[in-house]
């Protein structure tokens, strides 16, 4: 279970089992999205509908396959946890463990700083390339700043 995102405490196995059922449903959705992505890519390639390069079509197909496989693996993990009581309890304790929650929070904050620095570097380099990249990065940064401000306001009322 190492590598799981631990962000919330679950006081009972019943509550955690409900979360696992939700995760299983979401993982099936990922499988569907993956298959749809792969199908669109293969259909367009077959019919020659999209005037994009082979490389881009390959990336599209790769994302679809990866998403479907990831969803399928996640689904089987969730089901195996739901069906086994001792596994369910161990998974709940691992995910609700306050030290693991602290580790996840710290890791996310470090990753956020790295992400913002990387985006800045791409932003600077993209001046020599395409304007679309600059616009996309600007939108992402704006979205990030807005989300941070709004969630800080909401959390300051909750705590």
């Amino acid at each position: 279970m190492s590598g799981n995102f631990c962000l919330k405490k679950y006081s009972s196995d019943k509550e955690y089992a409900k979360l696992m059922k939700k995760r299983a449903a979401i993982s099936l959705l990922l499988v569907v999205f993956g298959i749809v992505t792969l199908a669109i890519s293969l259909y367009c390639r077959h019919k020659g509908l999209l005037s994009i390069s082979d490389f881009r079509q390959g990336v599209f197909a790769g994302i679809g396959t990866g998403l479907a496989l990831f969803g399928l693996i996640l689904f089987f993990i969730c089901i195996s946890i739901i069906k086994n009581e001792s596994k369910l309890k161990a998974a709940r304790i691992y995910e609700s463990d306050e030290r693991n929650i602290a580790i996840t929070t710290e890791s996310i904050s470090i990753a956020t700083v790295v992400l913002l620095i990387s985006m800045y570097v791409v932003f600077v380099l993209s001046i020599f390339m395409e304007i679309d990249i600059i616009i996309a990065i600007a939108i992402f940064v704006l979205l990030f700043v807005l989300t941070t401000i709004i969630s800080a306001k909401i959390n300051s009322h909750r705590m």
Partner: peptide, 8 residues
């Protein structure tokens, strides 16, 4: 007993 992992 206290609901955490052994690592904690």
């Amino acid at each position: 007993a206290v609901g955490v992992t052994r690592q904690t």
